[in-house]
Nucleic acid binder design. Structure first.
Lengths: 341, 341
DNA sequence: TTGTATGCGTTATCAG
DNA sequence: CTGATAACGCATACAA
């Protein structure tokens, strides 16, 4: 398959110089005489020559591309995190090759293999928990990795978010307002360490505050408006003494809110609804919702910066040790106080 | 820079076969004897050999990668569109190289050049309107392109959304409810053909329905909660006879809603608020909001499918003609009716 | 400072 | 069915 584009040889031919010189003029300008360089640059722009990054990547075994596998949960996608990740990478001269499989269909090792075949220099993953095969690939290729938004410590370096601390913020807040008996609408915890840690944190905080969270009042469901709606209805039909419903994410909280309203239940006067937020929407739109938000901007940015450092050779990409300096623990967000009774 | 990974030669050496045969066993299994292939496959998995896609891309001048430049507007990102784009590409065996610059800082030609250097096979752009330089690059490289969510006809093939028709849906609806004098909070129309067409559509529909939309009641502002909030306050302070506020996107609508509530204005009894949605959130969360939504899933999917066909050679990637078959005109979404007085 | 030659890992062509 | 060889476009070591 013969390419039809201008190559370095064409530029060489026209300028009467050698391919080597042209190459140098482009990537090591200081190694070439002023006039020669100018002549080359002129013909380059005249011919519309564009470096073939594939060939360059082959010889350098470096593609300046970072791959990311970011599973999504229904319509919950991590746009802010992605944005900051991408723009931070871009600032460092890297491109983002993105794989975002639906979580129910995710086959991480396979996704990673595809990315590696594409010639990525580093890898971004969501969360700390990964199948052994994933770890094997990473170890085997010795490819720099960073995990984003891990909720539990893991073997890979990553930007950690303390989901349990977030849960404590919420429950402590509710306790301070005098709430006693609460319910929790959780996301599916299987294969989702964040959901699992949120649930665990809620349970621990409830105990610490001597509150009550009956097993029957923990509903585990997929993230979604409708799911939150149904779960909330089930809860209020079942237990009449709940004063607060905490939700594992903002979709659930939003659905729950609608459900309560449809029953004529006042929020937050009769029942308080709290959401752990993946999105800034719910929090803004409905002030009757108590929310705690995740610092997505920071996560993406920190992850990108770390990788760029590693790729510069400034860190040893040792997959055995956790990069503690990058752990974001101090802030999972603030609780927006509102006029709960 | 000597690569440290297993290559096809290593597999060849161990199996005692030639590199060519190993290559064939992997990419053209039918051309190689059953036993030989099995022997190769065994050593391949034993050595953990992974094809070097960069080398493959070089010789084939095909990388199975599609580049996309999707500017974002503040926190408005097109997650659903991206999701369906990515997953549809993936089904067709393509990877997505994503560039998502903040719209205020976008330098499209430069972004495209970077993607092209990376060796993409095709390009995805947002909207129909692009600087001449962009068109020149595309023409020059003769690279397959598709535009997503173009609001006006353009020189490039694309998935078109009729924003004006959407605007008519809204205004006709308001007219049928008896509204006479309305206001419009628009996104910044400069460099945003969608925002511009929304505004234009609203104006035309207002005339067609013999309604009133004073120049002073058109506020153009950045997309955002706060911006919508401020704009709505300004409107109600200025004009006391408006019965409906239409907003250019859901962030604006959400902010406007909050503003009216803060003034004790009932929605929709006193003033009706309508949003054109980039997001399913506002619509769900607040039933007092009338919304019209954009079919993002379809857009991403259609764009991907088109490109895959083009790359298969089934369409001529002629940048001169608009791919009419791909234009999505029939549905920019439904108006959710609500109990407007 | 510039030219020449070689190799990066793969696939395609052409013999055998 | 398999092997040898030449390319893909670029970067670099080495020679001039």
């Amino acid at each position: 398959m013969k390419s039809k584009y201008v190559s370095i040889k064409d530029v060489a031919k026209i300028t009467g110089l050698s391919p080597g010189t042209v190459s140098r003029a482009l990537s090591r300008p200081e190694m070439v005489k002023e006039v020669t360089r100018k002549r080359i640059l002129d013909t380059v722009s005249q011919l519309g020559y564009v470096t073939n990054g594939v060939a360059r990547a082959l010889v350098n075994s470096k593609s300046y591309t970072v791959g990311a596998v970011i599973p999504r949960f229904g319509s919950a996608t991590f746009s802010t995190m992605l944005q900051t990740l991408e723009s931070s990478l871009e600032k460092g001269g890297y491109r983002l090759l993105l794989s975002m499989p639906e979580i129910s269909r995710v086959n991480e090792p396979s996704n990673i293999r595809t990315l590696i075949e594409s010639g990525i220099d580093a890898l971004v993953l969501l969360g700390a928990l990964h199948p052994p095969e994933t770890l094997a690939i990473i170890q085997n290729r010795n490819i720099p990795v960073v995990t984003m938004w891990s909720a539990v410590p893991g073997p890979l370096p990553g930007v950690h978010v303390d989901e349990q601390a977030g849960a404590f913020l919420i429950i402590n807040h509710l306790a301070s307002l005098g709430h006693q008996k609460i319910a929790f609408i959780s996301g599916v915890t299987q294969n989702n360490e964040r959901a699992a840690q949120r649930l665990r944190g809620i349970q621990l905080a409830v105990i610490a505050n001597r509150m009550t969270l009956d097993e029957a009042n923990i509903i585990e469901t997929r993230y979604g408006f409708e799911e939150g709606f149904k779960a909330a209805l089930a809860l209020v039909d079942r237990s009449h003494d709940i004063t607060a419903i905490v939700c594992g994410n903002d979709y659930l909280a939003t659905g729950a809110l609608s459900a309560l309203k449809s029953r004529g239940i006042r929020v937050p006067q009769d029942i308080s609804v709290t959401g752990i937020n993946d999105n800034d929407y719910a929090a803004y739109l409905n002030p009757s919702l108590t929310t705690i938000s995740i610092p997505f901007e920071q996560i993406g940015q920190t992850a990108a910066k770390y990788l760029i450092e590693v790729l510069k050779g400034n860190h040893t990409p040792n997959v055995e040790t956790h990069e503690l300096k990058l752990v974001v623990r101090e802030s999972t967000g603030q609780v927006r106080k509102n006029n709960l009774s």
